[in-house]
């Protein structure tokens, strides 16, 4: 399962079995969730079939919130005690958080078009989600431009840490500042049992898929980091060999 490059640079090239099993389980959960939503859940009395966007929209929102909050926590750890693994985890969580943020920002307006009669309104929760997403995208662009620069990594981590309070505000935005966004979880929950099963199945399926994406991306980033370390080691060896004849003469 592990291809060894040299005694001190062991890099697992192949995907571990546990990750493959996890990918299969997540795929099955997503399929089961989609089938349940399509075949078992009734259409909403007021909104009709479009309400079925809700299940994956809210699941994506959970994945976004958890991803961005975890990215902030790992960035803080990386700022306090820098390590390649903390940096890789922070980037993985951030990237996956951004993917699900875009899922929320596209599925939400499509649902809103039917229920509110318009795609977008500058109400507190929507605006905060957009702001946090832009901040996260800014961190990703910064890291892309800064490449391996230490200052780029630290500034990126500091910006990611700033996203944590905003993510917290997203959760309480409707409660504190009102707005048009419905409160399903805090506002009495889902009454229909089939809808409730569909909701939690979708949440579990999406969170499991998000975790798989984070694990896969983490492996890829760690592999990149080790490749860079190996390239540096090779350069150092070549330089030493070039210098050796000069030193003897």
């Amino acid at each position: 399962m592990t291809q060894t490059l040299s005694a001190d640079t062991r890099v697992p090239i192949r995907v571990p079995k546990t990750l493959i099993i996890w990918i299969i389980i997540s795929a099955l959960l997503v399929q089961a969730s989609l089938l349940w939503i399509a075949l078992k859940t009734p259409a909403d009395v007021n909104l009709g079939i479009v309400q079925k966007i809700f299940y994956f929209h809210v699941g994506s929102a959970f994945a976004m919130m958890l991803g961005l909050t975890a990215a902030s926590v790992m960035s803080l750890i990386d700022l306090i005690r820098p390590s390649d693994s903390a940096d890789a985890l922070a980037r993985s969580f951030l990237e996956v958080g951004v993917v699900f943020a875009f899922c929320v920002l596209t599925s939400g307006p499509l649902w809103a078009r039917k229920s509110w009669g318009m795609y977008w309104t500058w109400e507190p929760r929507l605006t905060l989600v957009l702001l946090v997403t832009l901040l996260a995208v800014a961190v990703l662009i910064l890291r892309m431009l800064a490449k391996d620069s230490t200052i780029g990594r630290r500034v990126g981590a500091a910006m990611a840490v700033m996203g944590a309070p905003a993510s917290y505000l997203i959760h309480f935005a409707v409660k504190w500042w009102g707005g048009n966004h419905p409160q399903v979880i805090q506002g009495g929950g889902i009454q229909n049992s089939e809808m409730r099963v569909a909701f939690w199945l979708a949440v579990v399926a999406i969170l499991s898929s998000a975790a798989v994406l984070v694990a896969t991306r983490y492996r890829a980033i760690r592999l990149q980091q080790r490749t860079q370390a190996l390239a540096l080691r090779l350069s150092a060896r070549v330089l030493r060999r070039q210098r050796a004849p000069m030193e003897t003469s």
Binding site: I53, F56, V96, F102, T106
Partner: peptide, 19 residues
């Protein structure tokens, strides 16, 4: 509503697939 539902799920799948 059906078109919006299909569009929402397609966009979400496309985003995750691209990633």
């Amino acid at each position: 509503g059906g078109s919006l539902l299909v569009a929402a799920y397609l966009v979400m799948w496309a985003l995750v697939s691209v990633f």
